[in-house]
C-alpha cells in the first residue's frame, strides 16, 4: 500500500482537483412544504393509531366523568353550557397540548430530531404535520364528549357543527403551545410537567363556570387559548347564538394558533441544530 499517513492527512490534492474541476455539485431536491407536511401528518397519524388510542379513551372518559360530577353542582343554563363546552375542549387540550409536549420533549432528548434535521424538510412541515395529526386525533373524543354532554344536561345539539371550526382552531392553538413547550423544555421531564400543567389549567379554568371564580383566576382564564374555544362553543348552545362573538372567539384561537405554531417552528429550528 502506497498511501502515506502524512500525505493522507495534509495533501488535499485529489479533493482540491475534484473541486476546481467541477465546482460545487448540484444539491438534491428540497422537500416542499405541503407534500412533506402531508407525509409527516400521515406518519404521525399512523403512530397515533397504534400508540394513542388507549389515551384517547382516557381523555374521553375523563371529560365524561367530569360532566357527570358537575351535574350535581350546576343547575342548567349558562353554567351547564360552560361545563359541556369546557369538557369537550379538554379532550383537545389533553391530546394536543399534553401528549404533543411529551412527544416533542422525548424526541428532542433521545436525539430523534436528528432524523428530521438531516432531511431537507422545512421545519414548519415537521411541526405542523405533527400538530395537525395530534389535533385531528382529538376529533372523535371531542364529538363523543359533546354529544354525551348535551344528553346529560339537555342541551340542544343543533349547532354542534361548530365543532368543525372549534377543533382545528383550538387544536392549532393548543398543539402549537404543546409543541413549543416540548421543544423548549431543557429536559423531557420538564416537557411532561409543562404539558400536564397546561392540561390542568385547561381543566380548572375551562370547565369550571367562570362566574364563581375570583378576579385573578378569571384573568388567567382569559390568557389561556383554550378558553376562547370553550366560549365560542358554549355560546352556540343558546337559543339564538350571537355569531359575531362566536367568530370573534374563534378568531382569537386562530391568531394564537398562528403565533404558537410560529414559536414552535422557531423552537424546532433551535433544538435541531445545537
Amino acid at each position: 500500500m502506497s498511501a502515506v499517513p502524512a500525505d493522507a492527512l495534509h495533501g488535499a490534492a485529489p479533493a482540491a482537483e475534484e473541486r476546481h474541476a467541477a465546482g460545487p455539485a448540484d444539491l438534491g431536491p428540497r422537500a416542499r412544504l405541503w407534500p412533506s407536511l402531508v407525509a409527516v401528518y400521515r406518519a404521525q397519524l399512523s403512530r397515533a393509531r397504534v400508540a394513542r388510542i388507549p389515551l384517547l379513551f382516557v381523555a374521553t372518559f375523563q371529560s365524561i366523568g367530569i360532566m357527570i360530577l358537575m351535574r350535581g353542582v350546576v343547575d342548567g343554563g349558562g353554567e351547564a353550557r360552560a361545563v359541556v363546552a369546557g369538557s369537550a375542549v379538554l379532550v383537545v387540550a389533553f391530546v394536543a397540548l399534553n401528549l404533543l409536549a411529551q412527544y416533542f420533549g422525548q424526541l428532542r432528548a433521545s436525539g430523534g430530531l436528528d432524523h428530521y434535521a438531516t432531511l431537507p424538510v422545512p421545519p414548519a412541515a415537521v411541526v405542523l404535520g405533527a400538530a395537525g395529526a395530534y389535533a385531528s386525533f382529538t376529533a372523535p373524543g371531542t364529538v363523543v364528549t359533546a354529544v354525551v354532554g348535551c344528553l346529560l344536561f339537555g342541551l340542544p345539539m343543533t349547532h354542534l357543527w361548530v365543532l368543525l371550526a372549534v377543533i382545528p382552531l383550538a387544536g392549532a392553538a393548543l398543539a402549537g403551545l404543546g409543541a413549543a413547550l416540548g421543544l423548549l423544555a431543557p429536559r423531557p421531564e420538564f416537557a411532561t410537567l409543562l404539558g400536564q400543567l397546561g392540561m390542568s389549567a385547561a381543566l380548572l379554568l375551562g370547565v369550571l363556570p367562570p362566574e364563581r371564580m375570583p378576579q385573578v383566576v378569571r384573568l388567567a382564564r382569559d390568557l389561556l387559548p383554550s378558553t376562547y374555544g370553550v366560549e365560542a362553543f358554549a355560546r352556540t348552545f343558546g337559543g339564538r347564538p350571537d355569531w359575531g362573538y362566536v367568530l370573534g372567539d374563534l378568531a382569537v384561537c386562530a391568531v394564537v394558533g398562528v403565533i404558537s405554531l410560529a414559536v414552535a417552528t422557531w423552537a424546532y429550528r433551535r433544538a435541531a441544530v445545537r
Partner: peptide, 14 residues
Amino acid sequence: AARILAYLGQESSA
C-alpha cells in the same frame, strides 16, 4: 448538508 448526504444516526426514536 441534508441535500447532499443521507445520515444514519444511532437513534431511531423518530
